[in-house]
Design a binder for these strands. Structure first.
Lengths: 124, 124
DNA sequence: AGCGGCGCTAACTATTCGTAAGTACCTACC
DNA sequence: GGTAGGTACTTACGAATAGTTAGCGCCGCT
């Protein structure tokens, strides 16, 4: 192995990429793009809560990492398509796996939160 | 389905849990704990770059979500063990999957960054 | 006797993020 | 024909969030 990655090394570039892919907006955008090509404004609407600033910033980071492909159609009004690269698709599948797991196990997770809060309450 | 989770709804509790699990420190901590029970100071050392404040905060969030188990041994000097719950183990496996994928594909990702930077440079 | 390790917490500061507005151009409507 | 709205962003500023430093009480080691 010529290049070795270690996300537990704070100076390893893989750490930065991991932050882009697992960050709040990066992960949600990747997950959405797994459904297919989307326009900027579609993502803005579908990834609820993201601001235009953060969406633009997130997409630029993911594009630089080679996870997202940006295609500009030089028409008026502007039309820009975002899609996953083959590389990005592989990453997105893993992210989506986590999200669906969380969604499927939400009842257990919420129950754990309640139990935790109850324990806290009685120990005061 | 009684309880429905949707990480793309900004008010869904799954969004918060997803942020804990995919956040910079949360994801790294979960990944590390997949190797087995760790003490606070072990995590601090092994998750390079985390501050004590963020580690404590992160562990508390993960504990509340039922992903991490915290066991205090009331001895002096203090001894606290952190481990993954069965629930946390499932989530951590998915996180680890993403990390190892990133580490394995680092050369491709770095190449993509270089290509992107080169494209930017000539278009100036 | 002093230093460092243990697992935190509190106060302060640096960095990041969200909010709101501006850009330049077009379509549709009244 | 003037206003409202949509496209894909960028910029400036206040608010939230993260990192830095210090301290705590107690211990073993030297």
């Amino acid at each position: 192995m010529a290049t070795e990655g270690d996300v537990y090394d704070r100076n390893c570039p893989s750490r930065v990429i991991a932050n882009h892919a697992t960050g709040q907006w990066g992960s949600l955008v990747m997950g959405k793009l797994l459904d297919g090509t989307k326009r900027f404004s579609e993502l803005r609407r579908e990834v609820a809560g993201v601001s235009e600033k953060m969406l633009a910033q997130t997409l630029q980071a993911l594009e630089r990492d080679g996870l997202v492909h940006r295609e500009v159609h030089p028409v008026i009004p502007p039309h820009v398509d975002y899609s996953l690269t083959p590389l990005g698709t592989q990453a997105a599948e893993r992210i989506r796996g986590l999200f669906t797991w969380i969604e499927d196990n939400l009842p257990h997770l919420l129950a754990a939160q309640d139990a935790y809060d109850a324990r806290r309450a009685e120990n005061v």
